[in-house]
Structures are given as structure tokens and as C-alpha cells.
């Protein structure tokens, strides 16, 4: 029950195609509203005609008569013509929006995002080579276009942060790209949109748009190696981490751990959430997660590693200290 309560407090930030803060999402919203209005009007027109056709008063002997049929032919043809014109218009509008979105200029930086069952591996690139790795949270500079290189490690996933841009699948064996540009600073939640297995529901991520200064600071912090644990408890935790199977799956740069199956934990203490947007990162939630990841996120790929309560306390203190 306690665990449950922890789960209940997780992420924040908007996740809506109507609450938009990114360049593409703004264009998309304009298009969507246009299309929705046009279609709503067409629907209303049809309904008015339907209502009148059903309820109108009729003269007594309304046999099939040629005059009425001819008039109907003209009207139906006109309606079909109007349909063709409207859809032609909508096609052009949607083509134009595609152009607007794709033409959003050259990217300030490239970030590789890899979908894994059920989290996101995020690799910041510098001059075309990997700089550092993190997970589930993508910081970008506000007002700059960032290019995401989308790949999948296993099955098809889909990257979707609706407040910033439309979605794009991550397809095994292919590389797709998506350009993001946040116009206002903030935390934008997103979620995997293609069914990818048992924990598809808990494969969230967030994009955090920072102003230039904080973004540069963040970048510098992240590319650095992990902090040496200061307190004794954290030091003990590091020993646990390195001694137990943790290090086989996770990497903390600056220590001998070099596992790559799980998220890079070098700066896990600086993330807002853990477990792919599942819970707010607190010391308690870290402990809960490490103690029993399978209850919190059934079926995920981190096994329960048996730890004594001292070990658990120490290792979560260590995780917490990895700012």
C-alpha cells in the first residue's frame, strides 16, 4: 500500500495536443482546429438536411416524379462537387502544414533516443560522436531546434510529446528523425505511443526546455563523471552497487561499473522521475524501486536483487547522491 502511494506521485508537466508549446505542435494545432471546424460544419449541414428530410410536411400523393428526381440529381451532384472541393482544400492545408514543420531549419544539436522495453535511452551527441548517456529525461535549450535520432533496441515504440510535436515511431533496423523546438521553458510530458509489450503503459518520458544558461549548466554537469560519494552511507552504498549485480546492468561513469542493459545512473540523482516517468525521484521511491521493481512495474526488465535492509538503505543513499 505504501508502494502504491509512492506510485501515485509521479510526474508533472503537460501532455496534450491542445496545450502546445513547441513550434510543430503549434502549427499542428492550427491545422487541427481548421480541419475540425470544417468537418463540424459539414456534419451540421448534413444533419440539418437529414432532419428536414425526415420531418418535413409532405403533400398527399408524392409519387416518384421525374421533376423531383431531376432536381435531386442536380443537388446531389452539387453536394458531391462540394465534397471534392472541401477535401481538396483540406489536402492542400495538410500538405502545407507538413512543409511548415519539415522546413524548421537546421538543428542546434542532435540527440539519439533509443526506445527500450520500457524506458528511453538518451545519448547526447557532440560532433557526431556520443558524448554522454542518460535516460527518460531530455533537456533541450528553449527556442532552438533539436534533432532527435530515433532508433529502437527491440520492438517498435513511438516517441510522442504532444505539447511539442507530433509522434514518430522508433522502428528496429531503421533510424527516424524528429525535430523538436520548445517555444516556452517548461516540463513537457510524453509517453510511448506504440504498443510495445507488458509495460507499454509506463513508458513515459519528459522533455525539459531550459533557458540557455541553465541548459549549458545542465550539459556540463551531465557530461562530467559521477560525484564521489561524500557521506559514509553513500560510500557504503557504492560498494553495494559495485558488489551486487547492479553494476552488471548499470553504469555509473567514474566507477568500474559498465553495464549497459539498464539506464545509465551516473546522474540519476538529478532526474525528476525514475522508472520512465513512473514515480517522482525521492530517496523513498528509489528504495522502493530497488527493493521490488517487479511489484511497482510488473514485467519490467530489472530483476529484484536481494538486499539486506542496510544494503538497501545504503544503495539508495548512493543513488540519491548521484546528482
Amino acid at each position: 500500500m505504501g508502494l502504491f502511494a509512492v506510485c501515485l506521485s509521479g510526474c508533472n508537466g503537460t501532455q496534450s495536443a491542445l496545450d502546445v508549446h513547441g513550434a510543430s505542435a503549434i502549427h499542428l494545432k492550427h491545422l487541427m482546429l481548421l480541419v475540425i471546424w470544417v468537418c463540424a460544419l459539414v456534419w451540421l449541414t448534413v444533419m440539418v438536411v437529414l432532419a428536414y428530410a425526415l420531418l418535413r410536411k409532405r403533400r398527399v400523393a408524392a409519387e416518384v416524379n421525374a421533376g423531383a428526381d431531376n432536381r435531386a440529381t442536380v443537388i446531389v451532384s452539387a453536394a458531391v462537387g462540394a465534397t471534392a472541393l472541401i477535401i481538396a482544400g483540406l489536402t492542400v492545408a495538410s500538405f502545407y502544414t507538413t512543409r511548415l514543420i519539415d522546413g524548421d531549419g537546421d538543428a542546434a544539436m542532435t540527440i539519439a533516443v533509443k526506445g527500450e522495453q520500457w524506458w528511453w535511452r538518451v545519448t547526447y551527441m557532440r560532433d557526431g560522436t556520443p558524448d554522454f548517456e542518460t535516460a527518460n529525461e531530455i533537456h533541450i535549450p528553449v527556442g532552438r531546434t533539436v534533432l532527435l535520432q530515433l532508433e529502437s533496441a527491440d520492438v517498435v515504440h513511438s516517441f510522442w510529446v504532444p505539447s511539442l510535436a507530433g509522434k514518430q515511431d522508433l522502428v528496429p533496423g531503421r533510424t527516424n528523425t524528429l525535430a523538436l523546438r520548445a517555444e516556452t521553458p517548461g516540463v513537457y510530458r510524453g509517453q510511448c505511443a506504440e504498443f510495445c509489450g507488458i509495460q507499454h503503459s509506463h513508458m513515459a518520458m519528459s522533455v525539459i526546455a531550459d533557458d540557455a544558461v541553465s541548459f549549458e549548466r545542465w550539459l556540463a554537469d551531465q557530461s562530467a563523471e559521477s560525484l564521489k560519494p561524500a557521506e559514509p552511507e553513500a560510500t557504503a552504498g557504492q560498494a553495494v552497487f559495485l558488489g551486487k549485480p547492479c553494476a552488471a546492468c548499470h553504469r555509473v561513469r567514474g566507477t568500474p561499473s559498465a553495464g549497459t542493459t539498464g539506464p545509465d545512473l551516473t546522474h540519476v540523482g538529478s532526474r525528476d522521475t525514475i522508472g520512465a516517468g513512473l514515480m517522482e525521484r525521492t530517496r523513498g521511491s528509489l528504495a522502493a524501486w530497488i527493493a521490488d521493481p517487479q511489484t511497482i512495474k510488473p514485467g519490467n526488465n530489472m530483476p529484484m536483487v536481494p538486499l539486506t535492509s542496510d544494503e538497501l538503505r545504503a544503495v539508495s543513499a548512493y543513488m540519491e547522491s548521484l546528482k
Binding site: A17, A25, H27, L28, L31, M32, V35, I36, C39, I87, L90, T91, A93, S94, T97, T98, I101, S158, P162, A165, G166, K167, Q168, A193, E194, F195
Partner: peptide, 14 residues
């Protein structure tokens, strides 16, 4: 018709 539009669909697909 709405989802038939590529850009519209990128927001509402799935």
C-alpha cells in the same frame, strides 16, 4: 478525414 491528414495524424495516431 481528419486522421487521413498526415500532420493531424501525427498527433492522434495510436
Amino acid at each position: 478525414v481528419m486522421v487521413a491528414s498526415v500532420p493531424f495524424d501525427t498527433q492522434v495516431h495510436d
